[in-house]
Amino acid sequence: MNEMKITFKKPEEILDFVNKVEKYDCAMDMNRGIYVVDGKSILGIMNLGLNNIINLKIYDEDCEELKKEIAQYAVA
């Protein structure tokens, strides 16, 4: 399992993120506090809110290409 911290500033970024991750076969969840949503769900991610730090869990060990594609949303 791989973990990243992600943030979105605009709704368009969530749409772009989902368009990128849905090309991959691996399962992923995102959570903020007690709320957990599917990492490929636009509405689920929008419910986590903008300008918040969101934990992304990717349940696949071979996801380096995916991590490169979504690096722009990672929190340093």
Score class of each variant (00 low, 15 high):
residue 63 C to R: 10
residue 39 G to Y: 08
residue 17 F to E: 03
residue 14 I to D: 00
residue 50 L to Q: 04
residue 72 Q to W: 11
residue 19 N to Q: 14
residue 54 I to M: 10
residue 52 N to V: 12
residue 46 M to S: 12
residue 39 G to V: 03
residue 49 G to A: 04
residue 18 V to Q: 03
residue 43 L to M: 14
residue 55 N to D: 11
residue 33 G to H: 15
residue 33 G to R: 15
residue 56 L to F: 09
residue 38 D to G: 02
residue 68 K to Q: 12
residue 44 G to E: 00
residue 68 K to R: 15
residue 4 M to V: 07
residue 15 L to F: 08
residue 27 A to R: 14
residue 7 T to N: 08
residue 29 D to H: 05
residue 4 M to N: 09
residue 40 K to Y: 01
residue 70 I to K: 15
residue 41 S to P: 01
residue 58 I to H: 00
residue 69 E to G: 01
residue 48 L to P: 01
residue 25 D to F: 04
residue 28 M to Q: 07
residue 26 C to Q: 13
residue 66 L to E: 01
residue 57 K to H: 10
residue 57 K to E: 07
residue 16 D to R: 15
residue 10 K to P: 01
residue 62 D to Q: 13
residue 5 K to M: 11
residue 69 E to A: 09
residue 74 A to H: 15
residue 56 L to K: 04
residue 13 E to V: 03
residue 61 E to G: 10
residue 65 E to C: 09
residue 43 L to T: 10
residue 33 G to P: 11
residue 19 N to F: 03
residue 74 A to V: 13
residue 40 K to V: 00
residue 33 G to T: 11
residue 56 L to I: 08
residue 37 V to K: 02
residue 35 Y to I: 10
residue 18 V to Y: 03
residue 9 K to N: 11
residue 20 K to V: 08
residue 20 K to D: 03
residue 39 G to Q: 01
residue 61 E to M: 13
residue 51 N to Q: 15
residue 53 I to D: 13
residue 57 K to M: 07
residue 8 F to P: 02
residue 15 L to I: 11
residue 61 E to R: 11
residue 73 Y to P: 08
residue 70 I to H: 15
residue 61 E to N: 14
residue 3 E to M: 10
residue 62 D to C: 13
residue 50 L to H: 04
residue 10 K to D: 06
residue 71 A to K: 15
residue 71 A to W: 12
residue 29 D to T: 13
residue 16 D to G: 00
residue 58 I to W: 02
residue 33 G to Q: 13
residue 59 Y to P: 01
residue 8 F to T: 05
residue 25 D to Y: 06
residue 31 N to P: 00
residue 14 I to Y: 00
residue 34 I to N: 14
residue 9 K to F: 11
residue 29 D to N: 12
residue 10 K to I: 06
residue 43 L to G: 07
residue 29 D to Q: 08
residue 56 L to C: 08
residue 60 D to F: 00
residue 13 E to A: 06
residue 8 F to Q: 03
residue 12 E to I: 06
residue 1 M to C: 10
residue 15 L to K: 15
residue 69 E to T: 00
residue 56 L to Y: 05
residue 17 F to Y: 14
residue 47 N to Y: 07
residue 13 E to F: 02
residue 49 G to D: 03
residue 68 K to D: 07
residue 60 D to Q: 04
residue 8 F to A: 04
residue 52 N to R: 15
residue 48 L to S: 05
residue 48 L to W: 05
residue 75 V to Q: 14
residue 47 N to S: 13
residue 32 R to P: 03
residue 28 M to F: 06
residue 61 E to F: 12
residue 62 D to G: 02
residue 4 M to S: 11
residue 5 K to E: 09
residue 12 E to H: 06
residue 59 Y to N: 08
residue 11 P to D: 07
residue 75 V to N: 13
residue 19 N to M: 05
residue 25 D to P: 01
residue 31 N to H: 09
residue 31 N to Q: 10
residue 63 C to N: 14
residue 35 Y to R: 14
residue 41 S to N: 03
residue 59 Y to M: 07
residue 48 L to E: 03
residue 12 E to D: 09
residue 69 E to I: 02
